[in-house]
């Protein structure tokens, strides 16, 4: 599995380029490594081609880290970005950030910094 690490600004350009090429968004996966939150974007070229993965690394500083949204480019990212926001306690710009979770629960997948 090859992963290309990009910055948030580059990710916007990548998303725009892939959207123009008719690529499908599979999903967005968040992962908390302790001191950073890694956001991986999985894309599938359509009709054929190998799946591509791009990763944005966001350093943690105590909550509400900002992540740029790609929902304006890929409408399919809406649920995935909401989930990312509520599960990891980050702030994804432009989405409400609560979809599945009950109000009493906050950021269940976020880990304590080592």
């Amino acid at each position: 599995m090859d992963v290309k690490t990009v910055t948030q600004q580059e990710m916007q350009d990548v998303a725009r380029r892939l959207r123009a090429a008719g690529t499908r968004l599979i999903t967005i996966v968040g992962y908390d490594s302790g001191d950073t939150i890694q956001v991986s974007y999985f894309f599938q070229p359509f009709p054929e081609g190998k799946a591509e993965t791009y990763r944005v690394v966001v350093p943690k500083h105590g909550g509400n880290e900002e992540v740029e949204s790609i929902t304006p480019i890929f409408p399919a990212a809406y649920i995935a970005e909401n989930e990312l926001a509520e599960m990891f306690g980050v702030h994804v710009k432009g989405v409400p950030g609560r979809f599945f979770l009950h109000e009493s629960i906050n950021a269940p997948l976020r880990r304590k910094a080592p």
Binding site: T27, V29, Y31, P75, A76, I79, A80
Partner: peptide, 22 residues
């Protein structure tokens, strides 16, 4: 994602209704 132990580090499930929901 594994962490070289019996426990897994992270499993993400993206199901089909998740894709069809919007």
């Amino acid at each position: 994602k594994g962490k070289k132990s019996k426990e897994m580090d992270r499993i993400k499930v993206r199901t089909s209704t998740y894709g069809n929901g919007p």
